[in-house]
Amino acid sequence: MLEPTGESSWRVSRVVEGLTSEVQSFSAAHLRDTSSQQLLAGYVSPQGDQYLVVYQYDGDTLSTVISKSYTDMIVADFTGKGDTQDLVLALPPDTELGGVTLQLLTANDGEFRSTQTLNLGEGVYSSCAALHAGTGSDDGMYLVMDAWTGTSSLVSDIILYDEATGFLQPYRPSGMSDIQRSTLRYHRELLSRDLDDNGTVDIPVEIDDGGTLQTPMDKRLSFLLWKDYTSMAGGNSKFGVYDSEYNIFMELPESMHGNILIRSNQSGTGWLICNAEGTTVYCEMRVVDPADNAATGVGNYLRIANIGSQQLQARVVTSYYGLSLDFISQNTVLLGSN
């Protein structure tokens, strides 16, 4: 702990040894009350085990509030107190059947403690991949958990905080009988996220009726639907194509769903989005080195994003309603960045 001793000087006031030599995350939050902040440090051991320590500093001493083994965590106001935040931990599986145990820690009477553990997906989930918090159409607080169902496939679960009972509970949208099957995807990078920045967590789903992917694009691209699932009607959905090589999602007009063919462009730097017969090219997407003279090419290419030293570029070849360069620029997302 460092404290200021003047306008431009600091002093070390307290020193506490951490659990391991590698810190994975570090943040501060109002977990106990509004007048104090707790420090959350996530440690990783040489064996890959993760530990979370919550520290409390009262101006005189630095003490440990909680020290637990965990796989992921998230801080948000799940319980609706408004002035303090809650902590949800995903704990390591403790049985041969696997599953994920979520632990809710919240402030009660000025103390911060565990108030609930919730077991999910026993026999189905092998571990938690990520936790995400967002609001639903009813302004309620939702928790979306991405979970591994083995070594290669991901599914999602939705958890709602029930104010009446004071507990987290699984949430199942109307018409969804099997949430694991409805949210299954095979690309490890396809984690849930707030895709359109509206405060609601969107879950990606790989679909097989989006259109036709010609070889070799079928090894690299997939059609996706992103859904928020937090309204009784199933929420909003966004249709598009996912590039697994560069971890890019490109939204497309819903009218293209099932009515397009995607093939490689002539230079092999990207792909062409065409009508279902492949006779009309609507647009081209490519990833090129801007320093390469050949990359300048012929046509009106717009830079969509930088990917390392390369550029993601787009151009419209044949006009299609709803698919403009502005639409492509605003609705193409690099999934590696939040």
Rank of each mutant, 00 (worst) to 15 (best):
P4N: 11
S8V: 09
S9E: 15
E17Q: 15
V23F: 01
A28L: 07
A28G: 05
A29V: 10
Q37L: 13
A41H: 02
Y57T: 09
V65S: 07
S69G: 14
G80V: 08
T84S: 08
L89R: 09
L89Q: 05
A90M: 11
L91E: 09
E96F: 12
T101F: 05
L102I: 14
A107N: 04
D109T: 12
T117I: 13
L118T: 11
N119P: 08
N119S: 13
G121K: 11
Y125H: 09
Y125S: 08
S126Y: 06
G150A: 05
T151V: 12
L160T: 02
L160E: 07
L168I: 12
L168F: 13
L168E: 12
Q169V: 05
Y171D: 07
Q180S: 08
S182N: 07
T183Y: 01
L184Y: 01
R188C: 12
G199R: 00
T200W: 01
I207R: 04
I207K: 03
D209L: 04
G210R: 03
T212D: 02
Q214N: 13
Q214I: 06
D218G: 08
D218T: 06
R220F: 00
T230G: 04
S231L: 03
G234A: 03
N236Q: 15
S237I: 00
F239M: 02
V241H: 01
Y242A: 01
D243R: 04
I248G: 04
F249Q: 03
M250K: 04
E251D: 09
W271A: 15
L272T: 12
A291H: 05
D292H: 02
D292E: 09
N293P: 01
N300M: 13
L302E: 05
S309Y: 15
Q311E: 14
L312W: 05
V317M: 11
G322F: 05
N331L: 04
V333A: 04
L335G: 02
L335P: 04
